[in-house]
Amino acid sequence: MIQITINQQLENINTNVVLTELLDNKGISHNSVALVVNQRIIPRSQWHEYVCQPNDNIEFFSAVAGG
């Protein structure tokens, strides 16, 4: 297990988990979010190959209503 931060909440996850698996575990559609790891935007094309590291700060952003 490793500890990471997801949207400012500490979480323990298995080792060797990639970002697409994180999304699937959260039940989040891949089409509707952008992912930031340690203040760096990870392109969608790299989600399946980025392996979460201990202490990663991961942020999920989505579109919301706004003017």
Partner: peptide, 10 residues
């Protein structure tokens, strides 16, 4: 139409 963005609230 305009949209905003925010961190997902689980």
């Amino acid at each position: 139409v305009t949209l905003a963005m925010k961190r997902v609230d689980f």
